[in-house]
């Protein structure tokens, strides 16, 4: 969707002096034309101050769940409620009320000890399984690269989390459409995750986590430019890139001075705490099978034509 309201001035409006550094050339035009934008996180700059975490909360607070209690009793009993409404302050993992958190790792590499802080949120994959496999149309990928869950529609089945290589979306029970349908028997709330401040981007303002960062850790721009900059940055620090090819390509690229295998081994992982492991393209088979589906009707037409031909030959032979 094209957005004529986006100008360089509006994109920079909320940024302080030096904020222009977080915008790559072509960003304004790409945003105006609804083209794919990606973010680059320079981990060598992140000091783990948490400003991005607080800004994220403040910017997105109006989207956070307001569950109605008591929750409908679930059937069957194996279906567990997920209630974070009494633990809204948790900020050391992803929750429905915390869409961005910082992982820290102390890693030895090249004879030096590196302390690396890693802001973690949705990777905004280029071909996201969460959006492709959502059976309800609640999750979708937008042309500007944002992967977003529609909280008016989501039933909280958690399938998006199950198919996400990083288990990013988090569930809150007691909220959403399922309460109006069959609250005991289908659905279990709404799934929440980073939507890269879609409302700000639509108005031509960069996401809150980017705007507020005192160290300019993040850069936003057209994906091709971001990838180019990520490689240049990695080369300058003899570092490594994560997110360019993971899951077939994401719109969140990390550049680190230490290998991501070492970071993955050093960070605390578990529910709401994603890893930094290598991830194959989860949708690759479907991409190939879709091509097979294009050929299938051709085979069907050929079978039909050959069937007619065979029948006509038989009939001609019968007449003779």
């Amino acid at each position: 969707m094209k957005n004529k309201n986006v100008s360089r001035r509006t994109f920079l409006k909320a940024l302080g002096l030096g904020g222009a550094g977080v915008l790559l050339p072509g960003t304004v035009q790409a945003a105006r034309q609804g083209e794919e934008l990606a973010t680059l996180l320079d981990l060598s700059r992140c000091i783990g101050c948490g400003e991005c975490v607080y800004a994220c909360r403040e910017s997105n607070e109006y989207k956070f769940p307001r569950p109605e209690k008591p929750f409908p009793p679930m059937f069957p009993k194996r279906v567990k409620v997920a209630d974070w409404s009494e633990r809204r302050d948790v900020d050391d993992r992803l929750t429905p009320y915390n869409w961005l958190f910082i992982q820290s790792a102390e890693v030895e590499h090249g004879g030096n000890v590196h302390e690396v802080n890693i802001p973690r949120r949705c990777m905004h994959c280029q071909n996201p399984p969460c959006a492709n496999l959502c059976p309800w149309g609640a999750c979708s990928r937008e042309a500007n690269g944002i992967v977003r869950i529609n909280d008016d529609v989501c039933l909280g089945g958690s399938k998006c989390k199950n198919v996400c290589p990083w288990d990013i979306p988090q569930r809150q029970t007691g909220v959403g459409l399922y309460r109006k349908l069959l609250p005991r028997f289908a659905g279990n709330g709404v799934m929440y995750k980073c939507d890269r401040c879609f409302q700000r981007v639509a108005e031509g303002v960069v996401p809150a986590c980017i705007e507020v960062c005192p160290e300019n850790v993040q850069t936003i721009g057209p994906r091709a430019a971001v990838v180019k900059k990520a490689h240049a940055l990695a080369e300058s620090m003899n570092g490594y890139v994560y997110g360019e090819h993971e899951n077939g390509g994401t719109n969140t690229l990390y550049v680190s001075p230490v290998p991501f295998e070492k970071l993955d081994a050093a960070i605390q992982k578990g529910p709401g705490r994603p890893g930094l492991q290598p991830v194959p393209n989860m949708m690759e088979d479907e991409e190939n099978l879709a091509m097979a589906s294009v050929l299938a009707p051709v085979a069907g037409v050929a079978a039909g034509v050959l069937g007619i031909g065979a029948k006509l030959i038989r009939e001609n032979e019968d007449e003779e």
């Binding site: 088979d285 069907g300 037409v301 034509v305």
Partner: peptide
């Protein structure tokens, strides 16, 4: 979910082939 999704794609291709044949 991935297995059933791929299965759905494979049999959708079969269905498309069958329907194309019937149309002809």
């Amino acid at each position: 979910f991935y297995f059933t999704h791929k299965t759905h794609y494979i049999f959708a291709a079969f269905l498309l082939a069958l329907l194309a044949q019937v149309l002809v």
